[in-house]
């Protein structure tokens, strides 16, 4: 082999190694000032609803979980460490938070469905009592007081926390329409008949899987599809609108979007401000509030300067309230409202 080829190969190897060595994890960032208007908005929300918001933030090193009241007060850090903790979800009684944790140090959210990178943990909502509830798993959600659901790459499992028994619910390799795609953020419909799923890997779309018929209804090309708590609608993030993303919602019947609607009708929320790159939408159980995070610049879910927002559904989106003020990455909020009754 001629010397210049060796030099070229060595140079490429060195370059690749150098790039890979730079982890790209987000900076811790810094606190930002909260102006009087934002304080007033948070106080107003706090008067309307007394709940708790949990989210994942990079403000102290790798992502940890934080929680706060719905008026922004009483912020607490409920997990700590070098692992990446994200996708927190309140248990039905609000006492426990389930979340994804990287097995080792910094891992990109892009690798959410990679094997042997994540486990699902739970922690008391006030912090403490951390337990691993699913090994080699991600996207953990509650489907009952003691039942959880999570993904392992192309598979979705249900686990009974009392017995520890895991049951395979869906496998994209065994459903022709899913083509072996990675199953991200599976969300079970309230009646337990359907899964709303974001497909990644070999396919990239959102849709609804009929668990009985194993049929697939594509609903869009975005991501982070989820169910309205009453089950009659879905909502998801579509790469369009102000800031390059917005939240769409359509009516669903028997696992199929049924209503003809145009672009404008599908729009559920798209903040008409500069911070309008919306992701991570999550409704409260009573379907009266929506929390999400949005950024003005960048896109990467776990790096860009996303800020948590809350909005009273049905009101003017311009009146949504920003809840975090930090240049670190704030993502995947969830909201728990004590005493709230599931929307019907």
């Amino acid at each position: 082999m001629s010397s210049w080829v060796k030099v070229l190969c060595c140079g490429l190897a060195l370059f690749w190694g150098s790039c890979a060595a730079i982890s790209g994890k987000p900076s811790s960032g810094s606190e930002q000032d909260i102006d009087d208007e934002d304080r007033a908005r948070m106080a107003k929300v706090g008067k309307q609803v007394q709940g708790r918001i949990v989210w994942s933030s990079s403000r102290i090193g790798n992502h940890d979980l934080f929680s706060m009241n719905t008026d922004g007060s009483n912020q607490q850090r409920i997990t700590a460490g070098e692992h990446v903790d994200w996708f927190p979800r309140f248990s039905p009684d609000g006492k426990t938070v389930m979340f994804c944790r990287s097995k080792k140090g910094w891992v990109y959210e892009r690798d959410a469905n990679m094997n042997f990178k994540w486990d699902v943990f739970s922690v008391d909502a006030a912090g403490g009592n951390q337990k691993k509830v699913a090994e080699n798993a991600c996207w953990g959600t509650w489907i009952g007081e003691q039942q959880i659901m999570f993904s392992r790459k192309t598979q979705v499992f249900v686990k009974d926390l009392d017995s520890g028994e895991e049951t395979l619910l869906a496998d994209s390799r065994k459903v022709a329409a899913l083509g072996g795609a990675d199953l991200q953020q599976p969300q079970m419909s309230p009646d337990g008949k359907f899964l709303a799923i974001t497909l990644r890997g070999s396919m990239r779309e959102t849709g609804i899987l009929n668990l009985e018929k194993k049929s697939w209804a594509q609903t869009g090309e975005g991501c982070q599809i989820n169910w309205h708590p009453a089950g009659g609608r879905i909502y998801w993030v579509n790469p369009s609108g102000n800031g390059g993303s917005e939240v769409f919602s359509v009516e669903v019947k028997a696992g199929q979007p049924v209503k003809k609607c145009d672009y404008e009708e599908m729009r559920f929320v798209d903040i008409p401000s500069r911070i309008s790159h919306e992701y991570f939408p999550q409704m409260s159980k009573d379907a009266k509030w929506l929390v999400w995070a949005a950024t003005q610049r960048g896109h990467d879910h776990d790096i860009a300067d996303y800020e948590v927002h809350i909005w009273e559904i049905g009101t003017d989106p311009e009146n949504c309230t920003r809840m975090t003020f930090h240049s670190g990455n704030d993502r995947w909020p969830d909201i728990f409202i004590p005493g709230a009754v599931r929307a019907q």
């Binding site: 329409a177 049929s215 209804a217 594509q218 359509v250 003809k260 672009y263 599908m266």
Partner: peptide, 15 residues
């Protein structure tokens, strides 16, 4: 997929 899953003939997006 379309051939296999006829249930996907849905009305969605008036445009």
């Amino acid at each position: 997929r379309v051939d296999q899953v006829r249930t996907r003939q849905v009305s969605f997006g008036g445009r």
